[in-house]
Design a protein around this nucleic acid. Sequence first.
DNA 1: TTCTTATTTAAATAATTGCTTAAATACTTA
DNA 2: TAAGTATTTAAGCAATTATTTAAATAAGAA
Lengths: 120, 120
Amino acid sequence: MNTCSRIFADEAQINNCKETLQAKQAVFTELTQILSLAANEARLKILFLLHLENELCPCDLSDILGMTIPAVSQHLRKLKDGGIIKFRKTGQTIFYSLKDAAVLLPLFNLLQKPLTIESV
Amino acid sequence: MNTCSRIFADEAQINNCKETLQAKQAVFTELTQILSLAANEARLKILFLLHLENELCPCDLSDILGMTIPAVSQHLRKLKDGGIIKFRKTGQTIFYSLKDAAVLLPLFNLLQKPLTIESV
DNA sequence: TTCTTATTTAAATAATTGCTTAAATACTTA
DNA sequence: TAAGTATTTAAGCAATTATTTAAATAAGAA
């Protein structure tokens, strides 16, 4: 695979890096999956709104976000499949809420500061 | 846009949410952009490696990650265009390093714990 | 100058994503 | 039961993404 044969290449450093990645492979996979969910503006807004409001239904979210109900519903499904939101059903209304937001809290903190992100 | 006309809809809550989103629109845009960069396993690994090793060249990264040099190079360009890494040139070798990692630090913290992500 | 090395750039392509519209569920009420 | 409401599901499509291969830069060494 590697075509690089620099004299200066630090074999020990490279092997060390490889081992570190290998040891953390599972975390990388999982973290990437969660970041992929958060790395969409609509979904990031949904997650932040659930954080602020505790629970919301697809209908409200559609209204707030200005997007169609099916579009919202499909984002919610992704978040649900990813295991970071849960729901409760009451009548025909379904209320969604955050399930495991630990990884997201630092992001919410950024969003809750009255500053722009550059100043963090 | 909205087709929902629930009797229970809390107009005040919905308007409040809309205003919050509007006020933070710029932060959402920027945060989504950074998250999109981190939400790729190869790029997340690159960022974490730069965090650990201070600086690395495309050649080393290709070796460590087990992917072709052009593939690495294009990930590096995205990160550079996104403003979160910088580089210095020495001879024909280009060393990349983190530029503004503030937003990423909580993610690195997760990766540096010896635990799995669930236990956080 | 020519050859090699490190890297980037570009074109092509396969895979994934997010939205739209339309249809299907499922619950509620008349 | 029939009609209406909240939501999901599914198919289609345009846009984006990540990779591959090949070619182009750019610097150093022969």
